[in-house]
């Protein structure tokens, strides 16, 4: 933090003249803290550590609960990580239960990628419209609208997918069920558009006004300014927006639980049913015996999900920093 207030330490110290017999010692300035001060400070530090310590607690708990699956015990042979993520046999409730989660991982990835593919152009276009094209009045009307839409609870979007989009798809395309990869991706995209648009709009608005003016003053049109000056300068922020959107799509639960169809299979077409990781967690946790193998397997899925979104987030963070550094 650059502007930590109050003087804590002065690194260079003070150099006083030695002529008048002062000592030349360099000394450090420290504030004197009363007990009340120290108390409040400690309280706030504890808050901060708790706020962040969750991160480690979550990790510890996920790994702890999941670990049983991978450690061999009498009556329950250990599952290898390769089998867990590489085999396509998720039959957790069979007497001889197997836990190969490949289909679930494939479901998550396919839905997340396809929804991001749908949402990105629209979200970025909307952002470009809002920040560069729309009149002041339209912007002031539409921006809060977009923000409001970003806060619609996902269960409501899931309901729309089930009750509106699914019957429509089923009839229009003459397919056995409207609850499938395509439907889930469309609904997830609708959900991600406001998020991507909002983040991207911030990135576009952060492009300094003076270089936009420079472009206009050189006879550039509105679109040329967007394309040649604003987009390149905002690239880092835009990439971050898309990656965060992808991360959210991976982690979103209710929509995929309600409209992806729930079949644990590797999809062959856009209109196949899938069962992403998050949907599996929410659907099966109720029926898994606490502490049992199924329960452990679900926590292992949670750990996979956690690590993946964490990686995405760190990537986004890294990208936005690198781009800022380049400018």
């Amino acid at each position: 933090m650059k502007e930590s207030n109050g003087v804590h330490t002065i690194n260079q110290g003070l150099e006083s003249g030695s002529k008048a017999g002062y000592s030349n010692k360099i000394f450090t300035l420290r504030p004197r803290l009363s007990p009340a001060e120290k108390g409040s400070r400690l309280f706030f530090l504890i808050c901060a550590i708790l706020a962040m310590g969750q991160m480690f607690l979550i990790m510890v708990f996920l790994f702890k609960e999941a670990s049983g699956l991978f450690i061999s015990k009498p009556g329950s042979p250990a599952l290898s990580l390769v089998d867990f993520l590489g085999r396509n046999d998720w039959y957790p409730t069979y007497p001889d239960a197997t836990f190969g989660a490949l289909a679930l991982v494939a479901g998550s990835i396919s839905v997340a990628l396809f929804s991001t593919f749908l949402a990105t152009p629209v979200g970025l276009g909307l952002a470009a419209y809002l920040s560069c094209v729309a009149s002041q009045r339209r912007r002031e009307l539409f921006k809060p609208m977009v923000e409001l839409l970003a806060s619609v609870p996902s269960v409501i979007l899931g309901l729309v997918g089930m009750a509106v989009l699914a019957p429509f798809l089923q009839q229009a395309l003459n397919i056995p069920t409207g609850l499938n990869l395509f439907n889930a991706s469309v609904i997830l995209a609708i959900m991600a558009i406001p998020t991507i648009a909002s983040l991207a709009e911030d990135a576009l608005s952060a492009v300094p006004r003076d270089i936009q003016d420079a472009s206009y003053a050189l006879g550039a049109t509105c679109w040329e300014t967007i394309w040649r000056v604003i987009l390149p300068s905002a690239m880092g922020g835009l990439a971050t927006a898309v990656i965060l959107g992808l991360g959210r799509a991976l982690g979103e639960t209710m929509v995929v639980l309600m409209v992806a169809g729930g079949a644990a299979q590797i999809p062959n077409s856009l209109f196949d049913s899938v069962r992403p990781l998050t949907a599996t967690l929410a659907a099966e946790m109720g029926e898994a015996a606490i502490g049992g193998r199924h329960y452990q397997a679900l926590f292992a899925l949670g750990a996979v999900l956690f690590l993946t979104t964490l990686a995405f987030n760190l990537l986004a963070w890294h990208l936005s920093r690198r781009w800022r550094g380049a400018r």
Partner: peptide, 11 residues
Amino acid sequence: AAVPSVVFGLF
């Protein structure tokens, strides 16, 4: 802030 809510549920 980016951890999926279902993971918080597991936790």
